[in-house]
Amino acid sequence: MSHRTADPLAESATAQMPDGYAYVELDEAASVGHALLAEECALAIAYNGISHAVMMVSPSALEDFIVGFSLTSAVVGAAKDIYDIQVRRAGEAFSAEVQIASRAFWTLKQQRRSLAGTSGCGLCGVEALEQALPQLDTLSVNPLPPAAHLADLRTRIGEMQKLARQSGALHAALFVDELGEIVLCREDIGRHNALDKLIGALSRESRDARSGFAVVTSRCSLELIHKAVRAGFASLVSLSAPTDLCVRWARRHRLNLIHLPHHSVPRIYSPAPARG
């Protein structure tokens, strides 16, 4: 099996500055800091020229990932069935052309009919980079939530997560209205599912997504940015730090993006801090 990375940048896809992404602390001092964020990219995988999946991954050890994915997804029965891997980079995305044994490819084609709808990772399983990195409308500029509406938010979220208190292992997506009150909470084992539920609840109750802001308790990855922009939220608050790609897309599409750390004041990543 031969492995070739066509673009040397594929081994290090970092697009952020050495000192990380700038943010401004949401308090009276409005101090500006920098933080290094986890990297995220779209990786399109094709077997013997047939597009199979697009995964959102960290851009390191991509060939290791491709081999492991091929094995654990039963695309191949053994690593020896993988003859060649070529990884190329195009902007924020990577593509991998994988050559596999004829018998493995025949089995894969038989399996493809059952793959739709089985993914649990949001973007995992879509078959085109256009779906992983879609064209989105740019939002209108909206004010940030008042700092007071973020006060004790972690505690208040915990009180709203009724299912999680019973079983654990559940993400939540919540909506905070214009008065700073949590009016909706939806929970799910999948972070993207929880946000979809929240968006559906807002629609069914005829609530304006711009009148408040959404909160997600999970890692803030790109598919959540997609959903928030498509739903028309003015602001998205995440309890976990966003990835670098999330910050770039939030800024590009004018989605206010705020990280609420455990023991620090909120950090505004989008809009970008004004340069001093």
Rank of each mutant, 00 (worst) to 15 (best):
D7H: 08
Y23Q: 05
L26F: 14
A29C: 04
A29V: 03
A29F: 05
E39N: 02
A44W: 07
A46M: 14
E63G: 10
S73H: 13
Q86Y: 13
V87M: 08
R88W: 03
A96W: 05
Q99G: 11
I100V: 05
A101K: 03
S102Q: 12
S102P: 09
A104L: 08
T107K: 11
R112I: 05
R112N: 09
G120N: 13
A128L: 14
L133K: 11
L136I: 14
D137C: 15
N142F: 05
P143F: 10
A148I: 00
A151P: 03
D152M: 07
T155Y: 12
R156H: 02
M160V: 02
Q161K: 14
Q161W: 08
R165W: 12
G168V: 10
E178W: 00
L195H: 09
I199K: 00
L202S: 04
D208R: 15
G212K: 04
V215I: 06
S218N: 05
R219S: 09
E223H: 06
E223R: 10
L224I: 01
K227C: 11
A228N: 06
A228M: 00
A234V: 02
L236P: 12
V237K: 08
L245Y: 10
C246T: 14
C246G: 05
V247Y: 08
R248F: 10
H253N: 14
H259F: 13
L260T: 03
V265L: 03
P266W: 00
P271F: 00
A272K: 07
G276P: 15
